[in-house]
Amino acid sequence: EEEEKKKEEIARLLGVSKEDVERILKKNNLDIEQLLRRVQREN
């Protein structure tokens, strides 16, 4: 699934687990696209 791939990509870029990414998304109330763009910009 596309969303899972995005979570895995974010996890890889941040050096965290996919579960961490899911927690970040919930905690910050971000959607996956916003987080992915933010992470890609910083790297």
Score class of each variant (00 low, 15 high):
Glu1Tyr: 13
Glu1Phe: 12
Glu1Gln: 11
Glu1Asn: 13
Glu2Ile: 09
Glu2Thr: 12
Glu2Val: 10
Glu2Met: 10
Glu2His: 09
Glu3Arg: 14
Glu3Asp: 15
Glu3Lys: 10
Glu3Tyr: 14
Glu3Met: 13
Glu4Ala: 08
Glu4Tyr: 05
Glu4Thr: 09
Glu4Asp: 11
Glu4Val: 07
Glu4His: 07
Glu4Ser: 08
Glu4Gln: 08
Lys5Phe: 11
Lys5His: 10
Lys6Leu: 14
Lys7His: 03
Lys7Ser: 02
Glu8Met: 14
Glu8Thr: 10
Glu8His: 10
Glu8Pro: 00
Glu8Leu: 14
Glu9Asp: 07
Glu9Arg: 07
Glu9Met: 13
Glu9Tyr: 14
Glu9Phe: 11
Glu9Thr: 13
Ile10Glu: 00
Ile10Val: 15
Ile10Leu: 08
Ile10Arg: 00
Ile10Gly: 01
Ile10Tyr: 02
Ala11Arg: 03
Ala11Cys: 06
Ala11Lys: 01
Ala11Trp: 01
Ala11Ile: 02
Ala11Tyr: 01
Ala11Gly: 07
Ala11Ser: 06
Ala11Val: 03
Arg12Ala: 09
Arg12Phe: 09
Arg12Thr: 08
Arg12Tyr: 10
Arg12Val: 08
Arg12Trp: 08
Leu13Ser: 03
Leu13Cys: 03
Leu13Asp: 01
Leu13Arg: 06
Leu13Lys: 05
Leu13Asn: 02
Leu13Ala: 05
Leu13Val: 06
Leu13Tyr: 07
Leu13Thr: 04
Leu14Ala: 02
Leu14Trp: 05
Leu14Gly: 00
Leu14Gln: 01
Leu14Pro: 00
Leu14Lys: 01
Gly15Cys: 06
Gly15Pro: 00
Gly15Phe: 04
Gly15Ala: 05
Val16Tyr: 03
Val16Asn: 02
Val16Gly: 03
Ser17Ile: 03
Ser17His: 07
Ser17Gly: 07
Ser17Thr: 14
Ser17Met: 06
Ser17Trp: 03
Lys18Ile: 14
Lys18Val: 13
Lys18Asp: 02
Lys18Glu: 04
Lys18Asn: 05
Lys18Phe: 07
Glu19Lys: 12
Glu19Ser: 10
Glu19Tyr: 10
Glu19Phe: 10
Glu19Leu: 11
Glu19Met: 12
Glu19Pro: 06
Glu19Cys: 08
Asp20Arg: 11
Asp20His: 12
Asp20Asn: 07
Val21Met: 02
Val21Thr: 01
Val21Ala: 01
Glu22His: 04
Glu22Arg: 02
Glu22Cys: 04
Glu22Asn: 11
Glu22Ile: 06
Glu22Ser: 05
Glu22Tyr: 03
Arg23Gln: 13
Arg23Glu: 13
Ile24Arg: 02
Ile24Phe: 08
Ile24Pro: 00
Ile24Ser: 02
Ile24His: 04
Ile24Thr: 03
Leu25Met: 11
Leu25His: 01
Leu25Arg: 02
Leu25Glu: 00
Leu25Phe: 01
Lys26Arg: 13
Lys26Asp: 08
Lys26Gly: 04
Lys26Gln: 12
Lys26Trp: 09
Lys27Ile: 13
Lys27Leu: 14
Lys27Glu: 15
Lys27Thr: 13
Lys27Ser: 11
Asn28Gly: 11
Asn29His: 12
Asn29Tyr: 06
Asn29Glu: 06
Asn29Leu: 06
Leu30Cys: 05
Leu30Glu: 14
Leu30Asn: 05
Asp31Arg: 05
Asp31Ile: 03
Ile32Asn: 01
Ile32Pro: 13
Ile32Ala: 15
Glu33Cys: 07
Glu33Leu: 04
Gln34Asn: 08
Gln34Val: 11
Gln34Trp: 10
Gln34Lys: 06
Leu35Glu: 02
Leu35Tyr: 05
Leu35Thr: 02
Leu35Ala: 02
Leu36Ala: 04
Leu36Pro: 00
Leu36Phe: 07
Leu36Gln: 02
Leu36Glu: 04
Arg37Cys: 08
Arg37Lys: 15
Arg37Gln: 15
Arg37Ala: 15
Arg37Tyr: 09
Arg37Thr: 12
Arg38His: 15
Arg38Gln: 15
Arg38Ile: 15
Arg38Thr: 14
Val39His: 03
Val39Ser: 04
Val39Gly: 01
Val39Glu: 02
Val39Asp: 01
Val39Thr: 04
Val39Met: 04
Gln40Tyr: 06
Gln40Trp: 06
Gln40Val: 06
Gln40Ser: 05
Arg41Ile: 08
Arg41Met: 14
Arg41Leu: 11
Arg41Phe: 09
Glu42Ala: 09
Glu42Tyr: 06
Glu42Met: 08
Glu42Leu: 12
Glu42Asp: 10
Glu42Asn: 08
Asn43Val: 14
Asn43Arg: 04
Asn43Asp: 08
Asn43Met: 13
